[in-house]
Amino acid sequence: MRERPKIHATRLAQSSGFLRVEQVDLEFSNGQRRTYERLKGSGLGAVIIVPMRDDDTVLLVREYGVGVDRYELGLPKGRLDQDETVEQGANRELKEEIGFGARHLRILTTLSLSPAYMTSMTHVVLAQELYPERLQGDEPEELEVVPWKLSELHTLLQHEEVSEGRSIAALFIAREYLSGRYRPGA
């Protein structure tokens, strides 16, 4: 395995209320030096939740995505708040976005959206034994909840409103976990 590059310096290049661009001066084990830029998230991480209504039915949400300027069908997700565990954040986001809490939450893995230039990480959380409970969220409009069968995941991939990589990955990870083919940490 190659030795990781040595960071010589980091500095803020640009900023926004959401992300900061950071420059990173690196030296690789062969002596080559480069300056890379990466997006540094301003939060404490994020969660994406796979809420299971029953053994085969996942609850998706239809939500406007300004980045692609259209409605997108995907999983509930959000940033973690200060002093909040991953499980607490997942349960809060469920209550805010789909009007359900979960009695059983399991962290399946952690995903990077783009490790080449982003520092943010998203925890994939499986939510089971759902119960009705709604919290006020920060969404500008109520999100539409759309049930989908995990056994029909292949048809979801063909849906014109489905392109968000974290949701697609999390659904496959959850399906493999529920089938017994994937064990976190194994």
Rank of each mutant, 00 (worst) to 15 (best):
V86Q: 06
H123M: 01
G31E: 08
E96G: 02
V61L: 09
G89S: 08
L73C: 06
K149S: 15
E96L: 03
V146W: 08
G43V: 01
V61D: 03
L105K: 00
T35A: 00
M118K: 14
R92G: 09
W148E: 03
E144V: 10
D138E: 11
L39T: 10
I48M: 08
Q32T: 13
R92A: 10
L135E: 15
E93N: 01
G101N: 07
G101F: 07
V24D: 07
V145C: 04
F100A: 02
R38S: 09
G31L: 04
Y117L: 14
E133C: 11
Q158Y: 05
T110V: 15
V68D: 08
Q82C: 00
A127L: 00
H123I: 01
S112F: 11
D25W: 09
G67Q: 12
Y131V: 04
L153Y: 11
V86C: 08
E37T: 13
P132T: 12
V21A: 14
N30R: 03
A127D: 01
H104N: 06
V146Y: 06
L111I: 11
V125T: 04
I98A: 03
L75Y: 02
D69H: 10
L44E: 04
E97W: 01
L111M: 13
G89Q: 06
G45E: 09
P115D: 13
E72C: 06
Y117P: 01
G137V: 03
K149I: 00
G43F: 05
D25L: 05
E27S: 11
A90C: 03
Y117S: 15
L39C: 11
P76M: 01
M121R: 15
S29C: 04
P76N: 01
L108M: 07
V66Q: 10
D56G: 10
L59Q: 06
G137Q: 03
G137L: 05
A102G: 08
G74P: 05
F100C: 11
F100H: 14
G67P: 00
T85H: 07
G89E: 07
R134V: 13
G65A: 15
T85R: 08
G41R: 02
N30G: 11
G74N: 02
G99I: 05
E133M: 13
S151D: 10
V24T: 12
Y117D: 15
L157Q: 13
S112E: 12
G65T: 04
T155V: 11
D83K: 11
L94S: 05
A116R: 15
K77A: 11
G78I: 04
N30P: 04
R53P: 00
L108D: 06
S114G: 14
R33G: 01
R20Y: 09
E133R: 13
T57C: 08
T57I: 13
A116W: 12
T119Q: 01
F28N: 03
D83R: 12
R92P: 09
I98S: 02
D55I: 00
Y117W: 15
Q158L: 15
R38E: 11
S114L: 13
H154I: 08
L94F: 04
L59G: 09
Q88F: 05
T57P: 05
V24I: 15
T57K: 04
L126P: 01
V125K: 02
R106T: 14
N91E: 14
Q32L: 12
